[in-house]
Amino acid sequence: MTATTVARGRSVRSRRPARAGGLTLASGLGLGVAMLWFSLLVLLPLAAVVATATEGGWDAFWRAVSSEQTAAAIRLTVGTAVLVTAVNVVMGTLIAWVLVRDDFVGKRALEVLIDIPFALPTIVAGLVLLSLYGPGSPLGVDVANTRGAVFLAFLFVTLPFVVRTVQPVLAELDREVEEAAASLGAGRFTIFRRITLPALAPAIAAGAALSFARAVSEYGSLVLLSGNLPLETEVTSVRILSSIENDNLAGAAAVATVLLAISLAVIVAIDVLQRRVTRRG
């Protein structure tokens, strides 16, 4: 499976190739029903977005996407997402390392903390960040209505992704390979750089892809935190919402298609990386 096994939960180690059989009548029907449901719920609506976006032809599409405000929003969103993903790659791997290779009282609590951004409603996340980093903050920091708020919000909601993709792979790594390197004279950092990191690379990349896609899609946490100031702190999803509220569905769909293209690219990337992970395993 694609991101399913890479991202969440354990890595898959089957003893022998999974023996899948052909479809029977019952399972064929089941698949048909499931596909119908899936199409009505997911595929058709998403197709409608793309269809509506291209209704007016390429010109209308381009106009909607390149308006000053929208272009600024896209730049801000993608730029901040890239920055946040870079931070996550480092911090995520670090956190996964500590969780897997270290042991101390309260480690379980850390695991729960990491999952909180995944389960917390995004609007609540916004409020959460506001209480520490907005007006009246005990830290005296106030990033409300600044670009820092966008960065912070993205950082919060994407926290779990790299950690959770790297963790299972790290846990399954063969320690003996590292021990062999040590016996040949490699120092701890060299071992990490030349042996561990390359083995983790696909998992890190998959997590980075998920993190990027999540950041780019974020909406709820920014509503209260960033002020959604046009050209300043307005992200792509906010632009889409304003277009919807202004009854400009075609324009909204155009920008939405840009985001969808990014999601699709992410999914393809993860699928490719997933193959790398299992091939090595």
Binding site: A3, F38, L46, E218, T236, S237, A256, L259, S263, I267
Partner: peptide, 13 residues
């Protein structure tokens, strides 16, 4: 792969 799509689509979309 498509089944994982909802995770990376923006809620506004």
């Amino acid at each position: 792969a498509l089944v994982d799509l909802p995770l990376s689509v923006s809620p506004i979309v």
